[in-house]
Amino acid sequence: MTISGTKAASGSGRRLSLGVSAVSRTRAVAGSRAASRPAAGKAKTAVRRSASSRQGRRSGAGKPAAGRKPGAGSPARPLPGLKGALSVIITARNEADTLPGLLKQVERLSPAEIIVVLNGCTDYSYERSRLCRKAIIVHCPESAGHDVGRALGAKLSRGDILLFLDGDMNMPASKLAPFAHAVDGGVDVALNDLDGLLPPFGLSDNVTRCKLYLNAVLDRQDLGASSLTAVPHALSRRALECIGCRELMVPPKAHALALMKGLRVEKAGAVNVIKHNRLRESNTGAGNAVEQLIAGDHAEALHEVLRQRQPAVPQSPAGQLEERRRLAAWRNRI
């Protein structure tokens, strides 16, 4: 794994290794300050942050409307109208075609930082992402698995508002801004509202059904099928701390945790991800691998819900039976 970024604040051309055993091939990201850990001899994982300002070079692309001066991108500088610092986390798998466009749009949000997690990319995603000088790029050549990149990106982030995106979406900044603004205005979890896109339930896919069910079990039918499973969404720093970075790799579980912890979870914008999602062999057709994975994720979420709900004194079978008896009588007006 390589973390490469262009940051005015960081040392130029510094190449640091994370304490990772190349033998076991386990790659640990210890935290956002991981880069400062001492080098380990055989580590494959490296963090590289080169200064961009020293070159005074601008890509020209994605120049914010506000007309920021070259090199003025202090990581803490908030977007006008946005009180908190924005971290944009983009996860991508072989999205060389869409990443440059998305990064341009993201730059228009004047984020404090952009973290691109490249997960098992074999195309030019890395090279293309590097054209965005602001981006900190985490490059995992070997796939880390579904949504692990979100957790990784979150762990590395420093902003007050975390906006999560996928590299396969090509989305104007105006569609992304509402999520960041919602969190800036006090929402903890700002979700994409998918309900306008839902087909009749009889025709819906298993993923949608899982999402509807989880929200129903958590007594949030009002959220419909909106969930942390879908991007774009944004989290407050508080939400991240409450939920825990690690849990983000199983988004429905993070979603359930957010609701059970009483965080403010709301729909914040409506972006048609179904239209923009890239179709792959693994995510098309009934019973596809992604669908199976997401079903398992929802099982995990429900497992957590049931675990936390277990009553201190479970109702006795006799008590249950009596309740049922009385209800049956009531329904039949006896």
């Binding site: 640990a28 210890a30 990784l152 398992g296």
Partner: peptide, 21 residues
């Protein structure tokens, strides 16, 4: 979930959970 485990027997794909703690 009790019988089949917390993921109800569904695969975790290629997730390397140990990457983030």
């Amino acid at each position: 979930l009790e019988h089949r485990g917390p993921r109800a027997g569904f695969s975790d794909g290629t997730r390397r959970r140990e990457m983030v703690r």
